[in-house]
Each structure stands twice: as structure tokens, then as C-alpha cells.
Amino acid sequence: MTTHVTEITSLAVDLIGVKKSYGRSVEALRGVNIQVRKGEVFGLLGPNGAGKSTLVKIMMTVVRPDAVAGTILGRPIGHLGKKSVMGYLPEVTRFPNYLTGRQVLDYYAQLSDVSASDRRRVIPELMERVGLSHRWHDVRCSKYSKGMLRRLGLAQSLVNDPELVVLDEPTDGLDPIGRRDVRELLTELRSTGKTIFLNSHLLSEIEMVCDRVAILNQGLVARQGTLTELTDHSVECHIKVDGDAAALTAEVEQQGGEIRDGMIVMTQHDGEKVNNMIDLLRGKGIMIESVVPHRFSLEDVFVQILGADARGLKTVEPGKTPPVAARPVS
């Protein structure tokens, strides 16, 4: 019982069976289960149309789900008290263009019930922190560039000192330096104990900052786990031999491998099979030029999942626990 309670309270986001349809034909979410622990940076990945933005909007009560159970910060979704300790940066932000950057933050801080004294203290600090220098504070945001608006949006999501920050494509529109700044900010936020829910198309970005990741595809969680869990078992061993590897196809396949680009590729992380393959090659007197273990990147895992799903091979149905690691599918 104690363990169970600890587990529950340690979850910042615990969504169970999230379903959402648009009309009769479009099933955006088909029973999504996602758990985010407190203090971690969680990445949500998925192709266009996977339902990522719908899920984020459901979390922020912008979209009403057909079905959902679970909690956010220990309370049901939409709990007003908990919304005051949540920050949100939507994929698209449209600030009132008659307001200055400072006024924008003041306006949204008031809506988040931030006291006047805190607003006075926090707003200039935040603007500097996201890289909006002092001379821009009192300039109408209609004069801001796309990148500056993104930075302002980021500041807006932090203006109430939230426990949970939900960021939808936070680096969209930012230049490389801006992206680096955002990554540093996320790392800094994590160090202060904040939970970050990051929805991004950029796999490299997710890979650099996230502790755990969920890959959403066709309205379902295809994979969920730490980066290591997702990529650790997704290892191939590339054996390059002197001569025509294709002649060994039958033996290689017998060992669970395949011939790809003139190389023997052992598609499973199984040391014994790799050793057997090497023994086999030596036994035949074939010169081994190199043996290179190849760990899949998140991108590889992502592409494999999408490819598998496109062929109907991988679908985690609602109610079933998604596997934490992908078996490479060639």
C-alpha cells in the first residue's frame, strides 16, 4: 500500500485511457496512458496527426476528452487550483498586439492569480531570463519577431512559477542559439524540481533534454520509457567481411541476421549469436574486417515504430502496457 501511494504521489501526470474523437470518422486518441514523474523532463513524440497536440490540449482543458481518468498534480484534469500551478505554451501563441511584452506577462500573470508584488518582481527577471533584453520590455509585442514572441510565450508559461510546465513545440521559430537557450532553461528548470512536459517534433531536442519519452502514433502510445530503455536493446552488430557477404545469406539468416549493404547485420542484441557468427566466419576462413556494434538513436526507434505501424505490425491497444523498448525491425 505504501509503495502504491508513493508511486501515485510521485506522478505529476497520470493519464489513463484518454480518448477523443472528432466526428464519427476521426479518432484522434484511442485510449492513451501516460505517466510523468515529478521533477522529470518528459518528451512526447509522434508524427503529424498522431494526436500529440490533442493530448496536450486535453491536459490544459482546451479540448474536452470523450473519456479520461487519472490526475494531473494529484487532482482531476481541469482542477482550477492545480491549473494555477501549471504553465502552458501552446504551439501557436497570439498575444494581444496592443500590449507591450511586459503588459502581456502582467495580463497572463493576473489571470493566473499571481499577486501584484510577485508580478512586479518576477516579470522583468523572466524577460531577461528568456533573452528579451530590457529595451524590449516596453515595446508593443506587434513589433516582436517570431523568435521573440516564442521567448515571450516561454516567459508567459513560467510567470506563475508553475510546478508543471507543458510546452508545445517551444523552440519552433527559434534560431540555433535560441534553441540552445531553451534547452539550458529546461535543464535549469529541472534542477529546480519542476516537471516539464515537452511536445516536440525535434528528436534531437528531446534526446538532449528528456529523461523519459512517449512515442504517440495513430492515437496510441507506441512506446514509453527512458531514453535508455527505448534505445538500449535496439542494437545491431555490423560485421564487415573481406569478399562477397551475400554468398553467406543462408548461414547468416540461420543465425538470426541478415545481409544489408554488403555487410552482415545481426539484428538482435545477442552476444552469443554474434560470437557464433564470428566463429562461423572464421571456420570458413573468411577475413573479418570489422565488428561494429550500432546502437539505435531515438530517431531510428521512432522511424522503426512508424514503419512498423504503417505495416500494421505494432499497435499497443488500450489497456495494455506499452513495451518499453523497441525490437529493431528492418
Binding site: 490544459m60 482543458t61 482550477l80 487550483g81 491549473k83 501549471m86 501552446p90 497572463y108 489571470l111 493566473s112
Partner: peptide, 8 residues
């Protein structure tokens, strides 16, 4: 989106 995410 922003307004609905606020505690009201």
C-alpha cells in the same frame, strides 16, 4: 488556448 489554460 492560453486563456483556457488559466485557472478560471
Amino acid at each position: 488556448d492560453l486563456l483556457l489554460s488559466k485557472p478560471m
